[in-house]
Computed example of a mutant assay.
Amino acid sequence: MSHAIINAGGQIMQVALRLQPTHKVPPGGRIVRHAPPPHDPETQTCTAVEPVPSGQAAVQFLIQDKPDALETLRARKLREIDGAFSAAAEALLQGYPQAERLTWPIQQTEALGWAANNDNPTPYLDGLAAARGIAAEDMRARTLDAVQAWMGASQVLIGKRQALRDAAHLAQTKEGLAALVWPVTN
């Protein structure tokens, strides 16, 4: 026979075939000597059922639309948004090894500094140019183009992610959360 540990609000906290000393019952909660009724494994909530005898007292599994069920869906939606963002950002990074990406902050700093004042030194970019066998001026211009392209593409992705996360935090219904999808269409 299995056991279910439920909290005072009826949320199924844990299901176990055999109780162990490590199983903790939350304040106001109960251990039920019965398998829980059919429930949503994502939100861990179930529909109302007849009280289930536990040997001590009758316990009723509660509510379908619990407040924390919305919070569980919100957390799932935030993970979905972050996953979609990561996939889109990763597409921008394809073809560049991690070791090269580690140098991007140096390249960006030098390229933007050079764009602001052509007299600013660019020792790292100059070294890359020498290793590639191209003119330092050409390397600076190519790097500046790449930096500006990255900044344009990444700000769109980051802005979309932030807008969707803001909307997810403000959503008051399951339907409102479900309506939030990547990419945002403007």
Rank of each mutant, 00 (worst) to 15 (best):
H169W: 09
S154M: 13
G159A: 04
L170S: 06
G176V: 00
A141E: 09
G159Q: 12
Q148W: 00
K160V: 01
V147T: 08
G152H: 04
D145H: 12
A178R: 13
V156K: 15
L144Y: 14
D138P: 05
K174Y: 11
M139P: 05
L157K: 10
K160Y: 12
L180A: 01
A171G: 07
L170C: 03
A179P: 00
T143I: 11
A167N: 07
Q148V: 00
M151K: 14
V181S: 07
L180S: 00
A179V: 02
E137C: 03
V147M: 09
A146F: 14
V147P: 02
Q155K: 08
A168G: 06
K160A: 08
R142H: 11
G159F: 10
M151T: 07
E175W: 12
L144N: 12
E175H: 08
S154N: 11
R142Q: 14
G159W: 14
K174M: 06
V147E: 09
R161W: 09
K174P: 04
M151Q: 15
L164H: 00
A149C: 03
Q155H: 09
L170N: 12
A178M: 08
E175A: 14
A149E: 13
A167P: 00
V181C: 04
V156L: 14
Q172L: 10
A171Q: 11
H169Q: 10
T173R: 10
A146D: 11
A149W: 15
S154E: 11
A153D: 06
Q148K: 07
K174D: 06
W150F: 13
Q162G: 00
A153F: 02
A171T: 06
T143M: 15
A141C: 04
H169M: 10
L180R: 01
V156E: 13
D166A: 10
R140S: 00
Q172W: 12
A141D: 03
Q172G: 05
T143C: 15
L177W: 10
A179M: 09
A163S: 11
V156G: 02
M151R: 15
L144M: 15
E137H: 11
R165K: 11
W150A: 04
A149H: 12
R161I: 04
Q148Y: 02
Q162F: 08
D138G: 05
A178K: 10
I158L: 12
W150N: 04
T173A: 06
D138I: 10
Q155Y: 05
K174H: 10
A153Y: 05
L157G: 02
A171Y: 14
D145E: 13
K160H: 15
G152S: 03
A171I: 03
D138T: 12
V147G: 01
L177K: 03
R161M: 09
E175F: 12
R140K: 10
A167V: 04
R142K: 13
R161Q: 14
I158E: 15
A163Y: 07
W150R: 11
